[in-house]
Amino acid sequence: MCGRFSLLGTPEEIEAWFDLMELEAFPPRYNIAPTQPILMVVSGETPPPGSNRPNRRALLVRWGFIPGWVKDTANYPLMINARSETAIEKASFKAAMRHRRALIPASGFYEWRRTGDKKAQAYWIRPRDGGIVAFAGLYEPWANAEGSEIDTGAILTTGANANLRFIHDRMPVVIEQKDFTRWLDCKTQEPRHVADLMKPAQADFFEAIPVSDKVNNFANTGPEIQERVAETLEERKKPARAKPPEPDDQMKLF
């Protein structure tokens, strides 16, 4: 599962990593929460003749996937993640898996380890070597009854790797830079052609840093939420299926 993440790279760093055209300036985001706007990279239209650059564009979407056929969102669950193993079979995600795959720039994510007594230890999980990563994502346009349209999205998850399994049994799918073009190519690459990309990151790719419960509050948006603390849970046991704190009325797009 992935219920919070961050994006600390500069627009210039993100442009270079994803081979994008110029991005508008934006501040570091330390505590991105569900229903807030997130940055996605998607395939653009056919590039002009003679161009050797991949044609990619940035898209701002609401984090919380809504299938186009949903009429009333009041009673529809908040879907921030999609299981990569079953997404092509689920009515909610199958069209997006075929036609609207995306990359989600991130600097890392947060996860909570829980014990039977409900105590939780938060972790900031980042690339061991730093830098930007690309989570696999799906996006979907959704229109309300008045015809107002918004893009919505979800992060694809997979089983956790050996180093992170003590925290939670799921983690975001990470797409390597060499596979960006194949993942984003929804014209010639069917879901079965990119199934091999939806796997856990290598065991030593991420490091997990214990942090305070400041991250639980979406209003805390500064670097202090990533400061290392002493772990409050001494024994590392097999985790129960855990959920991050429920999103409140936080920067909702509608």
Rank of each mutant, 00 (worst) to 15 (best):
S43K: 14
R56G: 05
W17I: 10
M40N: 09
P34H: 10
E22H: 08
N52D: 13
F18V: 06
S43Q: 15
Q36H: 03
T46I: 03
T10L: 05
R57K: 14
N55A: 15
E22F: 05
P34K: 11
I14A: 11
L20Q: 12
S43L: 13
M21K: 15
V61T: 15
N55G: 05
P47S: 02
A25E: 14
G44R: 04
E12D: 13
E45G: 12
D19W: 07
L23M: 10
T46Y: 03
D19F: 10
L23S: 09
A25S: 13
A33R: 03
P28S: 12
I14K: 09
M40F: 04
T46F: 01
G9I: 11
V42C: 08
T10H: 07
R57L: 14
P54N: 01
P49I: 05
T10P: 03
R56M: 05
T35P: 02
M21F: 08
R56A: 08
L60G: 07
V61S: 10
A25G: 03
E12R: 13
G64Q: 02
Q36T: 11
R62N: 15
P28T: 06
T35Y: 03
S43E: 15
F18S: 06
Y30S: 00
S51P: 01
Y30K: 00
L59Q: 12
R62E: 15
F18I: 06
N55R: 14
P54M: 01
W63E: 00
R57F: 06
T46D: 11
I32H: 02
R53S: 07
I14C: 13
S43M: 10
R29D: 07
A25F: 08
P47R: 00
A16E: 14
Y30C: 00
F18P: 08
A33N: 08
R53P: 01
F26M: 11
F65T: 06
P47G: 04
P54C: 01
D19Q: 15
G44A: 03
G50Y: 01
L23C: 12
Q36L: 02
P34R: 09
M40A: 09
W63S: 00
E12L: 11
L20P: 07
W63V: 00
R53I: 03
M21A: 15
L23Q: 06
L23G: 08
G44Y: 06
S51E: 11
W63R: 00
R56T: 04
N52C: 04
L20I: 10
E45C: 04
W63Q: 00
P28R: 14
P49E: 13
P28E: 13
F65C: 05
R57C: 09
E12M: 08
P48S: 11
N52H: 07
E12Q: 15
R53F: 06
L20D: 14
L60N: 07
P11H: 07
T46N: 06
S43T: 09
V41W: 02
A25Y: 08
P49F: 02
R53C: 03
A25P: 07
G50S: 04
S43G: 11
E15Q: 15
Q36F: 01
Y30T: 00
